[in-house]
Computed example of a mutant assay.
Amino acid sequence: MISLLTAVALIIGPVHFVDGKENKKSPEKKQQQIKIPKSVIDISKENTYPNPSQDEPELQPSEMTQALLETSKVPIENTNLIHLLNESNINTSKLSLGYNAMIYLGKWPLSYQSKKTTVNWQYKKVNVNESDNRGGKGKQKLNFNQEKQMNVTGGLTAEVPSQKDVKKLMMMKASKHTNLPIAFSTIIGARTTADRIYHVEPKRVGHLEAYVPAVNEKGTVTYGEVYLGLDGGDKFIKVKNVTQQGIGAWIPVQDYVSLKYHASK
């Protein structure tokens, strides 16, 4: 019995890759460790808006799914496809000997290979605080105080099929490379403050700008048409019509702000 929501039974046929070769995954370049500048502060405890955590437990393939994934010549990392296979029930018996079928599971973004991960620590300005000390004789204190709620969003740099799945694949890689809390949308709540103090000299106006950082992720997403093959008692995955597309994304960093102070006369 085969339980697959999107399955359409097809007569088995030959599998051809675009380049005539197995699409083996090339190793990703080792990413340099991301260092957080001193100007960047963690406001996760002070943020008056509770951003939902984007951390998800890594989906583990079932024993059957793992065996199927190992039969594929094209690497499969898409957790939605893995979940579909986990929820599928495939029972074979001796009576199925001689039975051949190919079940179409759809066209999927299969994996994402990161080529470059960087951080723009001043991606979006969200606030400016000022302290006018032009008439003062001593130093004045100035600290970060978010004046109004700000929503900062990111996104993909190009239109691609199955954007939701692609975003998830890219976030998984970017999160591992940066060890930062990232999401395609983050909010800084009004009246969020920070204890870091800046001193405004007499005869000066102090300006404290706050920015939300964002990760810039660039790489390649691999697409393919996925088939579940049944050959007697054997089960396997075949991927046809494999294509690759370059893609980039901006992914804001949650609950961090980058502060920039300057003074004017």
Rank of each mutant, 00 (worst) to 15 (best):
D165S: 11
T153A: 13
V152Q: 10
T153H: 08
A158E: 11
Q149A: 01
K164C: 01
T153V: 14
Q163G: 07
M170E: 01
V119T: 04
R134A: 03
L169P: 02
V160Y: 06
G98A: 00
N143M: 09
G136P: 06
L95A: 13
T118P: 07
T92R: 12
Y104Q: 13
D165Q: 14
T92H: 06
N143I: 03
L169W: 09
V126L: 04
M102Q: 15
D132M: 12
N143G: 05
W108P: 11
A158L: 10
K124A: 06
N100W: 03
Y112L: 04
V128G: 01
E147A: 13
D165G: 03
N120M: 02
A158M: 10
K164D: 14
N120E: 08
K141I: 02
K115Q: 10
P161M: 14
D132N: 15
D165T: 08
S162V: 07
S114W: 01
K116Q: 10
E159Y: 13
V119E: 05
L156E: 03
W121G: 07
K148T: 11
R134F: 05
N127P: 02
Q122D: 05
L110P: 14
P109D: 11
Q140N: 06
M150S: 13
Q146L: 02
N129M: 07
K107S: 15
G98R: 00
S96N: 08
